[in-house]
Amino acid sequence: MTAFLLSVHVLAAILAIGPVAVAASMYAPAVRAAAESPDDARKAATVAVLHRITRVYSVIAIFVPVFGLATGARLGVLGDTWLIVSMILTAIAAAVLIGLILPGQRRLLIDLQDTATGRRLGMQTGIFNLLWAIVVVLMIYRPGSTTGAGL
């Protein structure tokens, strides 16, 4: 059962958070391109599609911490420092996504010329991606890791 939970956790991370990270990273540059060519409907459509990808996959990404907690409980590591730090960073990443990135994308859908929001959004997306990168490293290079690559 542990292998199944871990497999779903990892697959959910790859298939849900990966698209969020990529679509969110592409959003600000797509907005700039659409703002530079206001008559190009394709560029505006790209912005809308990237927002939809970010929004929809953000909902699907809830499976990542759910199955992560189930896996951690099954392994008996819920009290381990590396996992607690990972959970805190995951919560911060979720807060950045829900509280900053998605609202910023919505604002830019309405006003492609809002350069201040576009710059902030790029920074916020970078923070989101950095948080997830740290979580991935903690998941792989954790103390007591079976990979033999413990910190």
Score class of each variant (00 low, 15 high):
124 Q>L: 13
87 M>C: 14
115 T>Y: 04
78 L>V: 04
113 Q>R: 15
108 L>A: 13
118 G>V: 15
61 A>C: 00
112 L>S: 14
79 G>I: 02
71 T>H: 11
102 L>I: 12
72 G>D: 05
69 L>I: 14
98 I>T: 06
82 W>G: 09
136 V>D: 01
85 V>W: 02
76 G>V: 00
115 T>E: 15
90 T>G: 14
100 L>R: 13
139 M>A: 06
139 M>Y: 09
135 V>M: 04
75 L>M: 12
92 I>R: 08
111 D>V: 13
74 R>Y: 02
88 I>A: 12
102 L>H: 02
127 I>N: 05
128 F>Q: 03
107 R>E: 13
84 I>M: 04
62 I>M: 10
126 G>L: 09
89 L>F: 14
92 I>G: 08
70 A>S: 07
135 V>T: 10
61 A>M: 00
119 R>F: 03
134 I>Y: 05
76 G>F: 00
100 L>K: 12
76 G>I: 00
92 I>N: 09
81 T>W: 00
132 W>L: 03
122 G>H: 13
73 A>P: 01
138 L>Q: 11
99 G>I: 01
63 F>D: 04
86 S>H: 08
87 M>Q: 15
71 T>G: 05
75 L>F: 07
75 L>I: 07
120 R>Q: 14
83 L>H: 13
93 A>T: 06
104 G>P: 14
78 L>F: 05
130 L>A: 14
82 W>Y: 15
68 G>F: 01
124 Q>F: 15
104 G>A: 10
92 I>V: 15
75 L>G: 02
93 A>E: 08
111 D>F: 13
70 A>R: 06
137 V>T: 10
78 L>T: 07
96 V>W: 06
111 D>W: 11
62 I>L: 14
119 R>L: 09
105 Q>G: 07
80 D>W: 00
104 G>Q: 12
95 A>C: 05
134 I>H: 05
62 I>E: 10
62 I>Y: 09
104 G>K: 13
108 L>C: 14
124 Q>T: 11
92 I>L: 14
88 I>Q: 07
98 I>V: 09
71 T>A: 15
107 R>H: 12
117 T>M: 10
96 V>K: 05
114 D>P: 14
127 I>R: 04
97 L>T: 04
92 I>A: 14
91 A>I: 10
132 W>D: 03
67 F>A: 01
76 G>P: 01
112 L>H: 15
62 I>K: 04
115 T>I: 12
107 R>W: 06
134 I>E: 06
104 G>C: 10
122 G>L: 12
63 F>P: 01
117 T>K: 05
103 P>F: 11
98 I>M: 01
116 A>F: 03
121 L>R: 13
86 S>P: 09
126 G>N: 11
70 A>C: 07
87 M>V: 15
89 L>W: 13
95 A>Q: 09
76 G>Y: 00
63 F>R: 00
107 R>G: 10
122 G>V: 13
67 F>Y: 13
131 L>A: 09
